[in-house]
Amino acid sequence: MEKLKNSSLDPIKAVPGLCISDRVAASSPPELRSQNIRRILSVLQPHDILKPTTLAYDDNDVECSGGPAQIQFKSILIDDDPTIDILQHLGTACDWIQDGLQPMSKDGAEPPRGVLVHCRQGNSRSGAFVVAYTLSLVICPNDCFEKQLRVWEHCRYDIYLEVEEDAGSEGRRERKEKPAHKAWKARRDDLLTRGEGDVNRARDSSLANAAAALGRCRLEDLEIQAAE
């Protein structure tokens, strides 16, 4: 709970304008103002989702649509669970982040726009989507999400392959899943068939590894700060 008390937007140094946070910071007008956030990607369960209600922001009303100080919202409704298929969301999410980071004007007259990716705690789910966009190692998603990111990379950042249908289809194309994604889903389905005990053990192991990795990252940060 200490993290929630000191919630803030953390800029991703490798990608100017991209930030990550927990749910609390994502609803803080001062934090959003500090990074000029214009898009918010929420990766949460439905009951945790950030409601796009009006926010006080630079003396203007910021809503999900309309107005000069518009903030756009996108939600991906998933749990922090190792059996969740995040691969199906990565393509559209990365495109949405990329579009949001594009400058509004070519002459640079307007300040750069910011994009925020957040989940409940600002670590695993949001971290997985930020890693997918930046291919960075500074975030700590749970290890099952990390495995899916490797599949995403193996699939060259698109889990679907467009192929032409048979000769009688008048040249129409259809999307088919790539083998790597099918293989991951087969392993996931196999785990689910083993029963609740095996699923819970996999879930606990995954979250424990993510927590340990996050702890190592924080320790390294403290050691760097102490050295400075």
Rank of each mutant, 00 (worst) to 15 (best):
K51G: 02
G127P: 09
N200Y: 12
P46F: 05
D143P: 15
I97C: 01
S169P: 03
C94F: 00
S169K: 09
R113D: 09
R203A: 03
L222E: 15
W96M: 01
I84M: 00
D143F: 03
R150F: 07
N6L: 11
G100E: 00
K178Q: 08
E170A: 08
P46S: 06
L214F: 15
G108Y: 06
K5F: 08
H118I: 09
Y160A: 02
D158Y: 06
V15Y: 09
I49F: 06
V115C: 03
A208H: 07
S28T: 09
D48S: 07
D59Y: 11
P111R: 10
L191P: 11
S206T: 04
I20C: 09
S42T: 12
C140A: 07
L90K: 02
L149A: 02
L55Y: 13
R150G: 06
C119Y: 06
A180N: 02
D80M: 06
R33C: 09
A93N: 03
I159N: 02
A25E: 09
S206Q: 06
G91W: 00
R173L: 07
A226Q: 15
R201N: 10
P52W: 05
C155W: 02
E228K: 14
D85K: 08
L32Y: 07
N209D: 12
S8E: 15
D58T: 10
L191K: 05
E223Y: 09
S136E: 13
D61E: 15
L44M: 14
E146L: 10
G66T: 08
P103R: 07
R173Y: 10
